[in-house]
Amino acid sequence: MTIDRKYALVASPTEEAQEAEALLREHHDFVDLKDAEGVIALGGDGFMLQTLHQMLAEHRIKPVFGMNLGTVGFLMNEWRPVGLEKRLAQAKTFTVTPLRMDAVTVDGDTVSSPAINEVSLLRETRQTAKLEVKAGGNVVIDELVCDGVIVATPAGSTAYNLSARGPILPMGSNMLALTPISPFRPRRWRGAILPDTTRIAFRVLEPLKRPVSAVADQREVRDVATVDVHLDTSLTLSLMFDPEHALDERIAREQFIV
């Protein structure tokens, strides 16, 4: 049976995802990614992020309908091979704007990368990190002593950010979460919620003694000296969800899970 819209099918290399891909190909016709109007992704949240980053890198941005064949699957729909045509036709689409991380290493190299969930700064050794934090061009913390710090989007606020006791941000809130990881000084600082128009900048203090890495979703840059983070409004991603399991409702429900 042919799905009305032209979809490409991609799958995680896991055995379960590969078997699911073979099953769908037996019953549906799919096209190459370059000819597709949308993408069906089979795997977990990590594979979804990988798929989205690949599309950003190749400048082939298309709506993605994910089905969970991984562990958590927060960004995915339930795996059900039956009734796929109807699910795609009724899917609710959410627009996600990624962050842009611009990192400069101690050697002077510059690395830029998008981040759909979060940008994280993490200490590389047993030494705590010491960071100067700027928001909107102003120094808001002279010296943050911590294991690290996270800048998270609403879509990513229920992931690493939540594990670090950061706030859950509703979709459409136009906010970013700035969350410290094991902060030692200032002792009582637990983070901030900032408008997503805010440019956030970090300067690593004592970078040779206390090396820090920066991670944009799954891409790590080691030994950074400065990291600038802002919302990249030039990029827009679309995620498709079953109406009964839409992303905004999932994020809202997470606030009541104990």
Rank of each mutant, 00 (worst) to 15 (best):
G166N: 07
T158M: 06
G44C: 02
T128N: 06
M76Q: 02
L122P: 11
R25T: 02
E15H: 13
V104A: 09
E19P: 05
F184G: 05
D248K: 09
I181D: 09
L162S: 09
G136N: 01
L178V: 10
T226P: 05
L122K: 14
R25E: 15
A57Q: 08
I257H: 13
R190I: 11
K62T: 00
I3P: 01
E206V: 06
W79Y: 00
T97G: 03
D109W: 14
T179E: 13
L121G: 13
V133S: 01
R87T: 00
A57H: 11
I257A: 12
R87K: 05
V72Y: 01
T125V: 14
S238R: 14
T233R: 15
I150W: 03
I181K: 09
I193S: 02
F30R: 06
A129K: 07
A216H: 03
A41P: 00
V149H: 00
T226A: 11
Q18T: 06
V31D: 04
S234R: 12
L99F: 06
E15C: 11
I200R: 02
V149N: 03
V221C: 12
A22V: 12
R126P: 04
S213N: 05
A36C: 11
E58G: 00
L205N: 03
K62Y: 04
R123S: 13
Q54K: 10
M1D: 08
K86A: 14
K130D: 04
R253P: 12
K134L: 12
H230I: 10
A201C: 11
D196I: 03
I181S: 04
L122Y: 13
A159R: 08
T2R: 12
L231Q: 07
E206W: 03
P211C: 10
I257K: 13
R185M: 15
Q54R: 15
T197N: 09
E15Q: 13
G83P: 01
V119T: 08
T226N: 05
I116R: 06
F256N: 11
E85I: 06
P207K: 06
A115F: 09
I193A: 03
V111M: 10
Q218V: 07
A129D: 05
T128R: 02
E19M: 14
M48F: 04
H27D: 07
V82T: 10
D142I: 04
A22N: 09
R126D: 14
V64Q: 00
H28T: 02
Q127V: 14
L237K: 01
T71V: 05
A41I: 05
V82H: 01
L33M: 10
R203M: 05
S213T: 06
A91N: 02
F256P: 09
T233D: 10
V133M: 03
D29C: 12
L162N: 15
P243I: 09
V149L: 08
G156M: 01
G46A: 07
S234D: 11
M1W: 15
E254W: 15
R87H: 02
L205C: 04
N77L: 06
T2N: 14
V106T: 14
K130M: 09
R219L: 07
R187G: 01
L84E: 00
W79Q: 00
H230S: 11
A89Q: 08
P207R: 12
A177V: 10
Q218K: 12
T197E: 11
